[in-house]
Design a protein around this nucleic acid. Structure first.
Lengths: 235, 235
DNA sequence: TCAAAAGTGTTCGGACTACACCCATGA
DNA sequence: TCATGGGTGTAGTCCGAACACTTTTGA
């Protein structure tokens, strides 16, 4: 078998938007870019797709390279393909976003990139069109989380309702009524109450919950309407 | 400025999933593939991204090449990037889907591809992973149309409520109550009733409606909940 | 006059919202 | 004992679902 010999071949990169939650705010992991152009500027973690790996594998490899984590929630977001988005040479970028438990991320292994967590509000200027990518990812995350139980991926295995509510508050930058909130999330049947409490964040202590993994996959695709009046928060 | 000289460059294609609605059923436009491998087999319309065009432009070009249409609704769906998905050579495919008014599409110009509309139910076998692409597009269309007024793109400018309902029936393969349906779509305020009727499809005749374009863009992003119990139909 | 499709209203139940007080604990 | 945060219940409203008859008109 021969090849598509007359066609132009292009560089294809994967860029990863890595979200984490520190208990109060949604954060983003950025690096100092390690190559020219724009070397040393803040950037999403990325890399080129190699010839033998799938794009999903590339995304996993790049995430692991930076965080050491595998098997985390990751989703392809969008392909950015304007010529000229990278001034050096045309690169088509496939953007993935990952949701990680920020506490599983340890200050790194390789010092190569000087990664750092940023609040969405005080992100530095990013190279190329990475700003646009981040905005698209945030919009997508809010959209998805309004309908599907995806934000649990940002929490540790055991978490409390106040922690969960703080997470929604951070993601949507909006207050939720705690009575309605707990009723709604518990009504999904996805949470299993534990016997023990988190005593670190309050005197009384808040019960831990874990996800019921047997129901999680089924319910994930249902429309759950987690966020009241989503129109108010999205777009 | 130099280039990313050591990196592998890959072929990048755009494949277009073209949906149309004939008044009764949702249909898909397929072609006879014009090149090896699998020449002559049924396929999505596609082509390689050229070095000077954006990926969106490539999608528009490919759609126009087949249908003669420009400015139609088109959206990037997903990048398919497994090595080996094309046996000839590795190709990363960016899949777009388009919604067109099937009546604007005229039997073609170029006979090169022998394009043909297929019901989703009796689609022929497709090359490579095109089957998977179509399934993903259908799922995405149903998802999106449950929340946003996107299916209007498949209808002519003037359409009747029975036509619109038939469209939803076709897309979701489910029956809708016409009283609830008309109340719901009219309550969005997106439709403007016309003075004239369509007398072709019934004796009594059904009033035409058009989209209120001034409201369309605003409302598009709202969650409109067009489909009752979406959980029943999606996934 | 009859067949075929268009058009329209009401009732019921469930879901969402708003809202306030008691509980448990460590300091 | 008090300050802090955790946990719970209810009433009112709105929205979605189910359901059937009348109207129009061409054949």
């Amino acid at each position: 078998m021969t090849k598509y010999s007359k066609q132009t071949r292009l560089l294809v990169a994967v860029d990863c938007i890595i979200f984490g939650f520190d208990g109060e705010n949604l954060k983003l992991l950025l690096i100092h870019r390690g190559m020219e152009p724009e070397k040393g500027k803040w950037s999403l973690m990325g890399g080129f797709v190699q010839s033998e790996e799938s794009t999903n594998e590339a995304a996993g490899r790049i995430l692991k390279q930076l965080t050491g984590l595998e098997g985390v929630y990751m989703e392809q977001l969008h392909a950015f393909g304007n010529p000229g988005r990278d001034p050096m040479e045309r690169v088509i970028s496939l953007v993935y976003f990952a949701l990680i438990d920020i506490h599983k991320y340890k200050e790194q292994l390789s010092d190569e990139y000087h990664p750092q967590w940023f609040l969405l509000k005080d992100m530095p200027e990013l190279i190329f069109d990475h700003e646009e990518m981040v905005q698209a990812a945030l919009k997508n995350l809010r959209y998805k989380a309004a309908l599907h139980p995806v934000l649990f991926e940002l929490l540790p295995e055991k978490f409390t309702l106040p922690q969960l509510q703080a997470l929604y508050t951070g993601v949507y930058d909006a207050e939720f009524d705690k009575r309605n909130f707990s009723r709604k999330v518990l009504s999904t049947g996805l949470l299993i109450k534990q016997k023990d409490k988190d005593k670190e964040n309050s005197k009384k202590g808040a019960f831990y919950y874990v996800i019921d993994k047997s129901k999680y996959k089924d319910k994930f695709q249902s429309f759950l309407n987690f966020v009241p009046n989503p129109d108010n928060f999205l777009f």
